[in-house]
Design a protein around this nucleic acid. Structure first.
Lengths: 236, 236
DNA sequence: CAGTGGTCTAGACCACGGT
DNA sequence: CCGTGGTCTAGACCACTGT
C-alpha cells in the first residue's frame, strides 16, 4: 500500500532513553567514546539535531562528557545530579501560611577579617558591610543570617534601610545577574546564635552559605542557619 | 557596499540574557504573559527555534512557566535553582586521595515500623530489609548509613553479600532506573550514632535522605549522616 | 476549535581543540 | 589542519489545552 514509508519517527527522549540504557548496560563503557552524532543519526534514522538534543540532555544529566573534536565520552563516575530550589525565605514562609517577619540585629561598616577578605579575593584592609539579622516565622526565629556585603561592588547598599527590607530581597531586586557558589552544611548553634534563635546551644542547624559574584567582583557572602528541624526536599 | 546585510545574528544565549534582563527590570512583569515565540523571533530577527531555545533555558532555570496554548508567563516567585551532585561515597573518598572502607553493622529482615510502611505506601506488616553500615575514610568513620530495602521490588538484594559491597553500589549497578526524592537536613547525633561515628553526642551531622522508586514500587529509603564538618558545594 | 509551545528536518556555517 | 560538537534557519507537523 504505502510505498514511501518512513521509519517511525523517534523523539529525542526515546534516543536519550536508549543512550541511557546503553550506558547502564555497559554497551557504552565508562570512559569510552561513543559514536558521533552523525553516525547515531544514521542509526536511528533521524536528523543530527535530534541526536544532539538527546546527547545534550544526557550530558546535562551528568552521564556524558562532550568536547568539540574530542567526541563524546561516558563519564567515569556517574554522579547523579539533583536540582534544589533555593527559596526566598519570606516567600517560603508566607506560602506555608505563616506570617513573615524580619529583624535587623546589627549593621557595621568596617574592615573585615583577613581570612574572609582572602576568600573573597579582596585586598587586606578592605571595608565591608557586616549585617546580622533574624527571619521570623509567626514571630518565632526561623533563620539566622550573617552577611558580608562588598560596597565597592554595590555602593547603593550603603543607602538602603536594612530595617525595612532584607539585604537578600534588595539584592534580588537590584543586582542584575550574579553567579556564585552555594555550600550546604550542618552547624552546631553557638551560645550566641542559640540565644537569638531560641534553641539549645549545640543544636544542629541546617546551614546554607552563598557567595555571589558580579562581573568578577564579590558581592556578598551570606550564611543562613535554619531553626532545628528544617528540611529541604527535591525530586531526583 | 553590501546590499543584503543581515542583522547581526543573535545567539540563543543573547536572547536568554535579554529575556532575563526584562524579567529583572519588570519589563516582563511577574505573573504576566510575555509575547509569543513568533513575535519575539520577529523582534530579534531570528528563527523561532532560537527563541524557543532561549525561553526553554529560562523556564528550566525557573524564571518562566510555559504552557501550550496558555503561553509563557513570568513566574511569580523566582526561586533560584542549584544543581548539586550526589556523590557515590566511595568515589568521593577515593578521589580526595583517602582510602575507603565499608563496615556492615547490622542486617535484619523483618516487619518494618508502621510509620515507615505508611510513608512507603506499603501494607502494614510488610517485611523489609534493614541495613546499617559505616563508610570509612582512612579508617575513620565518615558516613553512617541507615537503610531500608524493599525485597518485593528488588528480590535479588536478599542474595547479595552486603559485607562485600555496599547496598548503594549494588543498587547503582543493578537497578535500571529509579526516580525518587532527596531530603537534606541537619541532625543531632544520637548517643548510639555518636559512638559509632566517634563524635560527641549531639554533634551536628549533615544528613541526606533518599527515597527511590522503581515503576511505582518503593525500592529503598536511605539516611546517610556525614561526620561533623562535612560540606557540599555547588555553583549557582 | 484554534492558538501556542514542542519537536523534527535537512542543510549550513562556525568554534573549538586534538593531531 | 580538519573532525566534532554547537548552533542557526525556514518550514512543517503535532500535542496539548484554554475558550
Amino acid at each position: 500500500m504505502c510505498s514511501e514509508q518512513r521509519p517511525a519517527a523517534l523523539g529525542w527522549q526515546a534516543i536519550r532513553d536508549e543512550g541511557l540504557r546503553r550506558i547502564r548496560a555497559r554497551e557504552w563503557a565508562p570512559g569510552a567514546l561513543i559514536p558521533h552524532e552523525a553516525e547515531l543519526a544514521a542509526e536511528f534514522g533521524c536528523a543530527r539535531t535530534t541526536v544532539n538534543r538527546a546527547l545534550r540532555a544526557l550530558a546535562e544529566a551528568g552521564f556524558l562528557e562532550r568536547r568539540r573534536k574530542g567526541g563524546t565520552r561516558v563519564v567515569l563516575t556517574p554522579l547523579r545530579k539533583a536540582t534544589l530550589q533555593i527559596p526566598i525565605i519570606r516567600q517560603e514562609v508566607e506560602e506555608s501560611g505563616a506570617s513573615y517577619g524580619y529583624r535587623l540585629i546589627s549593621r557595621n561598616l568596617g574592615p573585615a577579617p583577613d581570612a574572609l577578605l582572602q576568600r573573597l579575593a579582596l585586598r587586606p584592609g578592605t571595608e565591608l558591610l557586616h549585617v546580622r539579622a533574624l527571619h521570623l516565622r509567626d514571630g518565632q526565629p526561623h533563620v539566622y543570617e550573617d552577611r558580608w556585603l562588598n560596597p565597592s561592588a554595590v555602593p547603593e547598599i550603603l543607602e538602603v534601610d536594612l530595617e525595612l527590607i532584607s539585604a537578600n530581597e534588595w539584592l534580588v531586586q537590584n543586582v542584575p545577574y550574579t553567579d556564585g557558589e552555594l555550600t550546604l552544611s550542618a552547624v552546631s548553634a553557638t551560645p550566641e546564635v542559640a540565644a537569638l534563635m531560641g534553641c539549645t546551644p549545640g543544636a544542629a542547624l541546617f546551614t546554607m552559605e552563598r557567595l555571589t559574584w558580579k562581573a568578577g567582583a564579590p558581592v556578598t557572602l551570606v550564611t543562613q542557619s535554619y531553626a532545628p528541624g528544617y528540611r529541604v526536599s527535591t525530586s531526583i
